[in-house]
């Protein structure tokens, strides 16, 4: 009995040790960002300052905010990502519901094509799509994101369709059948019964869609051109923009871009997502449990 106790204590200790170790590896870049973003030029070159800056130096943040044009860009970024994410969630739920609840010819083919669409890299479709938006004069407008989202072809739409398909499939049909016998139309059944009971699937889809749109740069750089600036694209051009903003002031005691300013810029560009994550944290971490997806 005693021997067994020691064994379980030991294995628990090993598990905690491994988890803490892995957790540190995961957090390391973030800790690095936080620590470096507060260092001034002296701290950066001082070999004795490794992790903790000698003082709380906030000028890096001031500069990074200026380079990114922070608050106007932040509001634009939220708006640019929120609208496609909401539309993508609504319209993929349509598709998922149709597949889960009704039988029709060609359903198997549609399911297969949805999976295939997931594998096709964006590079294969983005150039003709770009030319199409160009013909329609939609380059530099948000419609290049909105239109595919409305037709369930947005960013990683297949995943959301499958989430809704699985979720609606899990819901018992009885309530909807009862409503049908009472003479409710199918749209009423969908909006009044199916949608409210699928709330977890909607929340999970929306938060993932929002985050994935936020972090996307290949398509947004191509479709938005220079017209729409987001924080993610701003960070991509951080060094170049810094040169533009500060090249004049070098003579007036300005300084070159250093890693502390870059880290401050990176940190404030992901800060809204971090806050978003801690608000919806439970939904992210339990998304698989909540929607019952394991991919079968």
């Amino acid at each position: 009995m005693k021997k067994k106790n020691i064994k379980t204590v030991f294995s628990k200790a090993v598990i905690y040790f491994l988890l803490v170790l892995i957790g540190f590896v995961f957090l390391y870049p973030i800790l690095y960002m936080v620590s470096y973003s507060f260092m001034d030029t002296q701290d950066l070159v001082n070999p004795f300052v490794k992790w903790i800056p000698t003082k709380l130096y906030t000028d890096n943040y001031v500069r990074a905010c200026q380079v990114l044009d922070y608050f106007p860009t932040l509001i634009k970024t939220i708006y640019v990502n929120l609208i496609p994410a909401v539309l993508q969630t609504i319209f993929t739920s349509f598709t998922g519901y149709g597949l889960a609840r009704f039988e029709f010819r060609g359903k198997k083919l549609v399911m297969l094509l949805i999976l295939v669409t997931f594998i096709i890299p964006a590079q294969v479709t983005m150039i003709p799509q770009f030319l199409m938006y160009k013909d329609l004069n939609l380059i530099g407008s948000l419609y290049s994101y909105i239109l595919p989202a409305i037709f369930s072809q947005g960013l990683k739409s297949s995943i959301f369709i499958l989430i809704f398909y699985q979720f609606f499939k899990m819901l018992p049909k009885s309530l909807e059948e009862a409503a049908q016998l009472d003479g409710a139309s199918f749209m009423v059944i969908f909006t009044k019964i199916a949608v409210p009971s699928a709330l977890p699937a909607y929340i999970v889809s929306f938060i993932f869609s929002f985050v994935w749109y936020w972090n996307e740069t290949t398509l947004s750089a191509l479709y938005f051109g220079n017209k729409i600036k987001t924080l993610t694209l701003g960070l991509q051009n951080f060094a170049a923009t810094y040169q533009n903003v500060y090249s004049m002031s070098v003579t007036q005691g300005g300084k070159n871009l250093n890693e502390a300013i870059s880290m401050a810029g990176t940190l404030i560009s992901i800060l809204p997502l971090l806050i978003f994550y801690f608000i919806f944290q439970r939904w992210f971490v339990q998304s698989v449990d909540k929607t019952g997806i394991t991919g079968e």
Binding site: I30, V211, N215, T218, L235, I270, L274, F276
Partner: peptide, 8 residues
């Protein structure tokens, strides 16, 4: 998963 983007 939340913060992994190309620029970051």
């Amino acid at each position: 998963v939340i913060i992994t983007s190309g620029p970051v």
